[in-house]
Nucleic acid binder design. Sequence first.
DNA 1: CGCTAATCTAGAACAAGTTTCAGACTTGGT
DNA 2: ACCAAGTCTGAAACTTGTTCTAGATTAGCG
Lengths: 232, 232
Amino acid sequence: MTAEVRPASPPLTERQEARRRRILHASAQLAGRGGFDAVQMREVAEAAGVALGTLYRYFPSKIHLLVATMQDQLDHLHTTLRKRPPAGEAASERVAETLMRAFRALQREPHLADAMVRALTFADRGVSPEVDTVSRQTTAIILEATGLERPTPQQLSAVRVIEHTWHSALITWLSGRASIAQVRTDIETVCRLIDLTSPDTPGAAAGAGSEAGHGDGAGYGDAAGAGASGSV
Amino acid sequence: MTAEVRPASPPLTERQEARRRRILHASAQLAGRGGFDAVQMREVAEAAGVALGTLYRYFPSKIHLLVATMQDQLDHLHTTLRKRPPAGEAASERVAETLMRAFRALQREPHLADAMVRALTFADRGVSPEVDTVSRQTTAIILEATGLERPTPQQLSAVRVIEHTWHSALITWLSGRASIAQVRTDIETVCRLIDLTSPDTPGAAAGAGSEAGHGDGAGYGDAAGAGASGSV
DNA sequence: CGCTAATCTAGAACAAGTTTCAGACTTGGT
DNA sequence: ACCAAGTCTGAAACTTGTTCTAGATTAGCG
């Protein structure tokens, strides 16, 4: 039932699964203390009882390791959330409640949160698939909170904005530039102002352009192109 | 005139100012090629013609260096933007146009963008003041685009959400998880849906259901613990 | 069981950020 | 011009992520 969908080209043996689990456990453990910096590959390896080379065979970089740790934690969170769905009236309220619950969970382990979020945002293209998994997991949680059966492209865009805000607000909190109250305000603001109402609602903001995916293309050398000359 | 407000505890001598500038130039240069990874402290030092220790005296870490580089580039951008302000009707259009212009500027130097944004999001508490400066600069640019004289707390919250979205959307683009078109959609979505209208300004409105007057959840300024101390 | 390929271990080695240190150079004040 | 304090240089050292190697173990298969 759990989303635990890993590529897993070759299915892992039992011992391997156990190793993998020990590694993730050690990672979360160390992250729980000192955060990102405290997760040192040699220490993880030792704590998990594997050789350094093995650790790198399972997780090709520290970032991969921490992103996997986040997937793991998100699974837990998702499971927990499902046990007691948000009770708000409007979709926006339920989303806000869900995110605030998640935020409270993170507050309980700020160092762990630090390690995971830093890894997520620092991840480069080489980790995209894994980061994408986390992103989809987050989207799923939010969408579930909305209770929408068949979200429209506009609603999906709105969810994307909510996710962006959630993510970035977390960063400002973790880096000490925003208080907990400020994060709550940001979450409530985006959930309140962004339109999550169904398409049959008149006056709702219209056509949020294309859907997701990597359609790319799109002209961006258009109007105002010459505007921002100069470097940057 | 320009926001070029640096702490500058001891005012720098001319030679020092020149060194600082050479360092920043070298940093941007190297970042312009290979991005974050290509900015190697030894190389920056050599390219700038200073000793490694000196580089570290000016910028206590690679992150500090890149964040300072971003401040620098943002200054340029801000100046450029001022020369031809956005022309849209509604505040939201002007903000979207401004951000898209900035985005186009970043696209011209994707590696540089990568280096700067990665540094920003990876920055830990030790770099908070500098990151905060960048954040305030960004806020200023957006606020300027709105044309609001005295933004209400609600409007400031909206701007925060826009900034979060902008920031996070950039990350997804840089890490190859979102296309340029997708970023544009996200920017347009948040600008369109978030309410930026003034209480006394008629006309364009996003007001989908919820109204901004709503209770204003959570006040500003209670930065429990680590909040923004030295605000503008 | 015995073979082969894959995996695991221990440990060295390498890369890049960061620190440290002794000595040379600047600067500011007298 | 001279001195003291602060700054800069060059180079080595240290840290931690990552890679590599040689030999031991394990897994799958006939």
